[in-house]
Design a protein around this nucleic acid. Sequence first.
DNA 1: AGTGTATCCTGCAGGC
DNA 2: TGCCTGCAGGATACAC
Length: 277
Amino acid sequence: MPELPEAETIARGLRTTVVGERIVGARVLRADILREPKRRFAPKLRGRTITGVERRAKNVLIRLSGDRVLAVNLGMTGRLLPFRKPPRGRTRPGHPAVRLRFASGGVLIFDDTRRFGTVECLTADEWNERAERFGPEPLGDGYRPDDLVRGLARSRAPIRSWLLDQRRIAGVGNIYAAEALFLAGIHPRRRADQVHPQEAAALHGTLRDVLGDAIRAGGTTIRDYRNADGEEGGFARRLHVYGRDGDPCSRCGSAIERDMFAGRSAFFCPGCQPASS
DNA sequence: AGTGTATCCTGCAGGC
DNA sequence: TGCCTGCAGGATACAC
């Protein structure tokens, strides 16, 4: 998916275009991205006004009048695309799943090729309860090196698995886990509780750096990701290890390796990221 | 508390 | 050209 930086970029983009819009129609074209029957979903939206757009973990939250939240999880290929008027011809998204029509004549389309994404209309309370399950936001002011040090010390999971677990830390996915671990010099298979406190503190810094830099670059486009203006992110060319197996490491020249575990590819530099230390 | 595997789904790249 | 396999930014459920 879109990970934290991509969801943040989309939320920021939407904030400038859809806040203030009043929803006059909601059409579900692919009901499997909902978690409830579409007959119940659509009526909940009509007549509501968009009051804000936020991000939590990898979710884009569209705040609605009447204390409702349209919670969008983008899955692997989800996009949120606003248009001033209904798109025609070439500009029409290829896999529209939900289409909101605004009083202004504009539309917001949730498009999702693989349909791993979800769209839910919840009360603010329902969302808040859901959000309790997420770990801390890595870019939050209150997130300190010590929080990561202590979190890692309590787990025997491989560090990459730890970082991908949304209950432990929110918003980190496979790309940024790989990049942060590279920059901190930690092998993705290293047990979390074997990461030394000073390494964990370094990882806290590299995580925040890489996530922040990626937001400033507008996210990473591997293939499908687009921001709310339909544009690609610029961070892909700054990746050190993700998707670069076989390439020489930018630091030491060793060939980047790919290794599969927990069902996903892990990318790392065998020279810079020792399995133990 | 972990891992491995499977599942949801479409598209694309690579091998033959 | 086509057909096949494997893989993809995520999340979840299951057996072990």
